[in-house]
C-alpha cells in the first residue's frame, strides 16, 4: 500500500453515517474511494453540488457537472445542485460536518498553512479559508514530510489558512490530534515506531503511554 492510499483509508474511517463532507482536491479526494456507498454519506463540492458521485462512464461526461478540481463527476440519488452562495453558506454556517484538506504545514497550535508559499506559489486560497473556518471538523491529510523536511512544525512559517485549531492530522506516519495542550500523537502507521515519527517531526509531540498502530478496516 502506498502512502496516499494509507492516508486516504485512515481518513475514511473518520467519516460517519449521514455526514456531509467536503474533500479537497488531490490526496483528500482519494478518501471517497474508501467510503462505502451504502454509508449514506454526501460529499459536497464547493463549486456547487451535494452528492458528488464517481466519474461517469467514458463518453458520458457532462461539462456542466464537475468537482472543485474541474474533473468530471456524476451525482448520487438525492443529490442537489446549488449556487456558490448556498455552497459557502453551508460551509460557514455550521452545516458541513467535515472537511478534508491537504496541508503545507501544521503547527503546535493546530494551525494550518496550505494556500501560499510567498515568492514561489501563489495560487490563491480558493475555498480553503472558509472550509477551515467553518467546517464542524477539519481533517488535514498530508505526507508527513516534504522532500525530507518536516511539515509538522513548532510554528507555521507559511501564511496561515485560519487561526482555528484543526481537529486531526493524518499522515503516512501518524495520526496526530491537535489539542489546547499541543499535538497529541494518537497512532503510528504500520511498521513505524514512535521514534520514527518524532524524527520526522520538528514540533513537540505529546506522547502518553503506548501509541497504538493504525488499524485499517478492510476495504470492501
Amino acid at each position: 500500500m502506498n502512502a496516499k492510499e494509507l492516508i486516504a483509508r485512515r481518513v475514511a474511517q473518520e467519516i460517519k453515517t449521514g455526514m456531509l463532507v467536503n474533500l479537497g482536491i488531490g490526496l483528500p479526494s482519494l478518501v471517497a474511494n474508501y467510503v462505502a456507498v451504502d454509508r449514506g454519506v454526501f460529499f459536497q463540492a464547493e463549486n456547487g453540488v451535494i452528492g458528488l458521485g464517481a466519474r461517469p462512464p467514458e463518453g458520458m461526461e457532462d461539462p456542466h457537472l464537475t468537482d472543485a478540481g474541474g474533473g468530471f463527476v456524476s451525482a448520487v440519488p438525492g443529490a442537489a445542485s446549488i449556487d456558490s452562495a448556498m455552497s459557502f453558506g453551508l460551509i460557514r454556517g455550521g452545516h458541513l460536518d467535515m472537511t478534508v484538506l491537504g496541508g503545507l504545514q501544521v503547527d503546535e497550535s493546530g494551525h494550518l498553512a496550505n494556500w501560499k508559499v510567498p515568492g514561489k506559489m501563489v495560487p490563491g486560497m480558493g475555498g480553503a479559508m472558509d472550509l477551515v473556518s467553518g467546517a464542524l471538523m477539519v481533517v488535514v491529510a498530508m505526507q508527513h514530510t516534504a522532500k525530507g523536511a518536516p511539515k509538522i512544525v513548532p510554528e507555521c512559517t507559511l501564511p496561515l489558512t485560519a487561526v482555528r485549531r484543526v481537529d486531526l492530522v493524518v499522515t503516512d506516519l501518524a495520526v496526530i490530534e491537535p489539542s489546547p495542550e499541543g499535538l497529541i500523537l494518537r497512532e503510528r502507521a504500520p511498521g513505524v515506531s514512535v521514534d520514527d515519527v518524532c524524527k520526522a517531526t520538528s514540533a513537540t509531540l505529546l506522547i502518553d503511554g503506548d501509541v497504538p498502530e493504525m488499524q485499517l478496516e478492510p476495504t470492501s
Partner: peptide, 28 residues
C-alpha cells in the same frame, strides 16, 4: 476567499453595505 467573494458580490446586488465573516480572521 471564495465564500467571501460571493458574499461581497451578493451584498452589492442585494443592496447591503457589506458582510461580516469570520473567514480570514488572523490571516493575511
Amino acid at each position: 476567499p471564495q465564500g467571501t467573494l460571493v458574499e461581497r458580490i451578493r451584498a452589492a446586488g442585494m443592496g447591503l453595505g457589506g458582510v461580516l465573516t469570520a473567514t480570514g480572521i488572523g490571516t493575511e
